[in-house]
Amino acid sequence: MIDPMGVLEGLLAQALLTAVAAVAVYLLVSRQRRSFGSAEDRATLRTLALATSTMGALRRGLTARSAAEVLPEVAEQAGAAVAIYDSEGLLAFEPGPPGPADGHRLHLEGDTAAVLEALTTGRLRLLAVHDEAADGCGLRAAAVAPLLVNDRPVAALVSYHPQTPGPTSLRITSDLAELLATQLRLQQADQQRVALVRSELRALRAQISPHFIYNTLTTIASFIRTDPDRARELLTLFADFTRKAFRGPQDEFASLADELVYVHQYLLFEQARFGERLTVRYKVEPEVLNAIVPTLVVQPLVENAVKHGMESSTGRGTVSIIAEDRDDECWIVVRDNGRGFDASQLAGGEGGGALANIDRRLRETFGPSHGLNIDSLPGTGTTVRMRIPKYRPGVHRS
């Protein structure tokens, strides 16, 4: 089971490592290149450009294409020709400015076995490239710095030099490799977060499926003799609803409009089941329909409202769904007039099933102050509120 807080803490730690590595590279490069004098600002901008470009490219994964995208910046920072290898071989090579590395493309295949062997050690290694001049290539040494993810070497950054590199050049290569590895670790953390979200969505679907399917099929069966047209209509709607509910993992986010369509379909079946006993009221302001919300945050609340408002009562029940425009936020309220419960039992995220799941997802997405607000006491009905920021970096439909 993936620990969501562990994933978030890992993301923060890796972001900090990226910043530290970028600063270290800048300090070493600016120290080595004294000739820049008062132009240190340009070295700073180059380092920041490197961190930015690697973040965009490597967060999509390490491929020949992403390696080729980041190597020009890496070569400029290293002041040397560079290459990236993964466990299977060369991904990309960048000779840098015209110089002794121009002819080395002809000899890259000869480097592969030695680089891969050095990669498996997981440590910085120094390799001899040519014993003597070869086909116009003036390189003589290569520094192989591993890219570690979960303490396992998954790739290597190789810098090439016309002579044995000194400590400063080796340190620059090592720190550049750490910066690249940090982006790969962030990419892995992103994958873990997506896997966590999808597993939670599957868990939510599993919670609503058996009970709901049984009740809905029973309701449809009851209409077959008394109202065949209604039965056919409900069966068609049910097929569409279940197709959406139980297909493969959905996107992490959806528009509020899409969520409310799903809620409306669900309530059609519940109204067919309970008849006039169940009243549904909508109050949705059009300004909030494009708000982006985590997938499956409204329907489980509505299902809970129906369960507490109707299933334990022989009287009438009302479920209200409200979505209001409040400046830079969308306020969503689900209310029922049912039997209520002791909301204090949900303190600390214990119990509550779907409610605890939704509360945790909202807090992780929008911040600690954006969890569910539950107002309920036995015999008084239940009101569940959530505040959704209209705009939040990283929150968008796929």
Rank of each mutant, 00 (worst) to 15 (best):
L180M: 08
L260M: 14
V158C: 01
A245W: 12
R247N: 10
V149W: 11
G248Y: 12
E233R: 08
V194I: 14
A141E: 13
L127V: 04
A221N: 07
F246M: 08
D229M: 09
E200P: 12
L126Q: 05
R232F: 10
P162M: 08
L157Y: 00
L139F: 01
T216W: 00
Q183F: 05
L196V: 09
L180N: 02
T182I: 03
A156L: 04
A155C: 03
A206V: 14
V149R: 06
A203V: 10
A142S: 11
T120D: 04
A245R: 12
A257V: 04
K244N: 13
A221G: 10
L201I: 03
D151M: 09
A133G: 10
L170V: 14
T164F: 06
A245T: 14
V158R: 00
R125K: 14
R152Y: 12
A257M: 06
L148G: 02
S209A: 15
P249A: 04
S209F: 15
V158Y: 00
G166P: 03
R225Y: 11
Q188N: 08
Y262A: 11
T242C: 14
Y262R: 06
L234T: 06
T182K: 00
P167Q: 01
R243F: 11
V149F: 08
P167S: 04
R230T: 10
P153N: 10
A141W: 15
A156W: 00
L148Y: 10
